[in-house]
Design a protein around this nucleic acid. Structure first.
Lengths: 236, 236
DNA sequence: TGTATACAGGTTGTATACAGTAGCCGCAGC
DNA sequence: GCTGCGGCTACTGTATACAACCTGTATACA
């Protein structure tokens, strides 16, 4: 294996390692606290230390990895406080984002159509028989919805910051147990957001988003109180 | 110069290069658009390519450097749109931060004393004879004030995000001409923020911060209309 | 004259060798 | 038995060598 050739528009090895690790952390396959030695990652990914290092540094900047200067890297831990902080912060950013998306949708017909389509899908979701498949398809749809909001956010800083928070949210979902009851309520919340957005009512959209986030956090905390979370530190 | 020895608690070479470049970009010594070849930085800093690379990647993540995959790095450019985006984003974050700081100051006597002291300093500043020295000391004080707010912000994400925006703001100030008239008004705005904060009135503090940011942006735009900015792209 | 191609220089992406340190284990001493 | 110390191993931080790529220029050709 010779050196240096990430094709024309292709991704560099650092990109690949970064993406792979990010996904594994997000899915919970790499549990919080798992040590990430550079040499181990070299064996695991086939890349050399240089790209592995770069990937680790990037993940550390995103908060997915804790990097202790002369000691090594570990998958970042999740504390109760960090969950609170995450949702408080999202509650600040995402209502503002959906405001911008609402305004964008009033002028951009393409965008408007995309949200209309998603609204129909949400409505269909709620009618399906309750099952794991329903949960999964709902979360995929909700993900598309969130990314649509992000994409419609005009402010560069806001867009990038929200995008950077998403892996944390996703990881949290994958680390905790899915609450089937929650899905039903969450569908309703998404319908409210869609309706407000399509009606061009930015205030209502922002309120719906804030409410959605509040409910999501409440559900997480409730579930943590019941079933103990695997992979979550309850220290904070 | 042998390899590998960043003492016990000392900073690594990557840290040093990162800090140095960050400061130079912030001060405008490295103008927007300046190409940053790794080899050139190697000569300039005395470090080898590895730490230089890491520093560049970090700066890119902070938005201070634009990194084109196989082409190189340049000091990031500043467009009118980016200035607007920056201040819009700050207007979302910093009022929330000063809210948290206000609440923190009601319970933390130490913090309270620090803000009281700064309030006095602001009051003294306005009485000094108008001069460059006055401007400089004011901006230093304002910087300390901002950092105090950041330090008092409880939410980790909010704190880190605001801190990451500061170099952008500072650079903007250093790239544009200082408006002596602005200083006087800005002192008043800071006094209002201090008073609200010390009175424990989070709403008033947030409002004062929002107003301060609005006025700052307006001043920048006014000055751009008058004197043409050096180092600023007016493309956006 | 205009276009396409080949070449050269410089730059990044990657791999790997080396230097120094932190943590760990076993052992001696109290 | 417990504590302090010495050596060892594994790891990170750094330097450097090599390979591929991109840009711009000069040249050949229509």
């Amino acid at each position: 294996m010779s050196a240096g050739f990430p094709g024309p528009g292709e991704a560099s090895k650092a990109d690949l390692v970064h993406r792979q690790l990010k996904e594994e952390i997000e899915l919970g396959e790499l549990a919080p606290g798992t040590p990430l030695s550079e040499l181990w990652l070299v064996e695991r990914t086939g890349a050399s230390r240089t790209p592995v290092r770069e990937a680790l540094r990037r993940l550390a900047a995103e908060g997915l990895v804790d990097l202790v200067p002369r000691q090594g890297a570990r998958v970042s831990r999740v504390s109760l406080q960090s969950v609170r902080d995450l949702f408080d912060f999202r509650s600040l950013l995402e209502p503002a984002a959906i405001r911008q998306a609402t305004e964008a949708a009033t002028t951009d017909a393409e965008l408007r159509r995309a949200f209309t389509a998603m609204r129909s899908e949400f409505a269909r979701t709620v009618r399906r028989a309750p099952s794991q498949a329903r949960s999964r398809s709902f979360y995929e749809l909700a993900d598309r919805f969130d990314w649509a909001i992000i994409g419609a956010t005009r402010n560069e800083h806001l867009r990038r910051t929200i995008a950077e928070l998403r892996p944390h949210t996703a990881r949290l979902r994958n680390l905790s147990h899915v609450d089937p009851q929650r899905v039903e309520v969450s569908v309703a919340e998404h319908l409210r957001m869609c309706d407000a957005l399509l009606a061009g009512d930015a205030d209502a959209a922002a309120t719906a988003m804030a409410e959605h986030l509040t409910q999501s956090l409440a559900t997480i905390f409730r579930n943590l109180a019941h079933g103990p979370a695997e992979g979550l530190d309850l220290l904070g």
